[in-house]
Computed example of a mutant assay.
Amino acid sequence: MPRLAIAYWSGSGSISVAARLIAEGARAAGAEVDMIDVSGIDDAGWQALNDATGIVLGTPTYMGGPAAGFKAFMDASGSGIWVERRWLDKLAGGFTSGVNTGGDKLATLHALAIFAAQHGMVWIGQDVIGAPVIEGNRGLNVSGTFLGLAVNSDGEGGLTEGCESSAHHYGARMAAAVQRWG
């Protein structure tokens, strides 16, 4: 069975909510899921990432890029995992949150996609076209971001309207990708 690992760091809580919803969407679509909070990653967490068919990377956008807690995880992967190419050809995707609708979240997704590319991973972006282009998709992909999932924090640890269903959908998208190509 395809195995998806969700590696995330959450500041205010919105990334934890998004990670849980991505996991729910992936499980509903038939994938096994490991959730790994990288703020306390241990050997079992690193092993789960190594064993996964695909890895979804999640961090809030702080000051125009990945949060320092997630960046520490990225940097820690650079010695053994990167050099030994342990994540080579794994599928990868990413998600971020910010309080503002734009909020430079695309810069964070760029950083995550480049990180995945440096590991030799294959990136999976967002597939849903939101409203008003597709009226039936009202509330989905409200940011219009296709590089990955960009959700809006409500400023209190949750997500704004529509972002929950977008996160669930992205989890199903990642599950379908690991089933098809993993």
Rank of each mutant, 00 (worst) to 15 (best):
1 M>S: 06
1 M>I: 07
2 P>N: 00
3 R>C: 09
5 A>V: 12
5 A>G: 15
6 I>D: 00
6 I>M: 02
9 W>S: 11
11 G>M: 11
12 S>I: 10
13 G>D: 09
16 S>T: 10
16 S>K: 15
19 A>L: 07
24 E>D: 15
24 E>C: 09
28 A>I: 12
29 A>E: 07
30 G>S: 11
34 D>N: 14
34 D>I: 09
34 D>Y: 10
35 M>F: 07
36 I>A: 01
37 D>T: 10
40 G>V: 12
40 G>C: 12
41 I>Y: 02
41 I>T: 05
42 D>W: 00
43 D>T: 10
44 A>H: 02
45 G>S: 02
45 G>L: 04
45 G>C: 03
46 W>P: 00
47 Q>F: 04
49 L>W: 00
51 D>R: 02
51 D>C: 00
55 I>R: 07
58 G>I: 04
58 G>S: 01
58 G>F: 00
60 P>V: 01
60 P>E: 03
60 P>I: 01
60 P>W: 02
63 M>D: 03
67 A>P: 02
67 A>W: 03
69 G>R: 02
69 G>H: 03
70 F>A: 04
73 F>Q: 05
76 A>S: 01
77 S>H: 01
79 S>E: 08
80 G>D: 02
82 W>E: 01
83 V>D: 04
83 V>C: 03
84 E>N: 09
85 R>D: 13
86 R>E: 14
87 W>K: 09
88 L>T: 10
89 D>R: 05
90 K>Q: 08
90 K>V: 11
90 K>T: 08
93 G>A: 14
93 G>R: 15
97 S>V: 10
97 S>L: 09
98 G>S: 11
99 V>R: 05
100 N>R: 10
100 N>E: 06
101 T>G: 07
102 G>K: 10
103 G>L: 03
103 G>S: 05
106 L>M: 13
107 A>Y: 15
108 T>Y: 07
110 H>G: 13
110 H>R: 13
111 A>T: 05
113 A>K: 04
114 I>R: 12
116 A>T: 14
116 A>D: 06
116 A>G: 08
120 G>R: 04
121 M>H: 02
123 W>K: 01
124 I>R: 04
124 I>L: 00
124 I>T: 01
126 Q>A: 11
127 D>M: 05
128 V>W: 08
129 I>K: 00
131 A>T: 10
131 A>G: 06
133 V>R: 07
134 I>H: 11
135 E>K: 15
137 N>R: 07
140 L>E: 13
142 V>N: 13
142 V>R: 12
143 S>Y: 00
145 T>R: 05
145 T>C: 14
148 G>A: 00
150 A>G: 08
150 A>C: 15
151 V>M: 11
152 N>D: 13
153 S>M: 09
153 S>V: 02
155 G>K: 03
157 G>P: 08
158 G>Y: 11
159 L>S: 09
161 E>T: 12
163 C>F: 07
163 C>D: 14
165 S>L: 14
167 A>N: 03
167 A>T: 05
168 H>S: 13
169 H>W: 12
170 Y>A: 06
170 Y>L: 07
173 R>N: 06
175 A>H: 03
176 A>C: 05
179 Q>E: 13
181 W>S: 14
181 W>Q: 08
181 W>D: 15
181 W>E: 14
182 G>Y: 12
182 G>H: 13
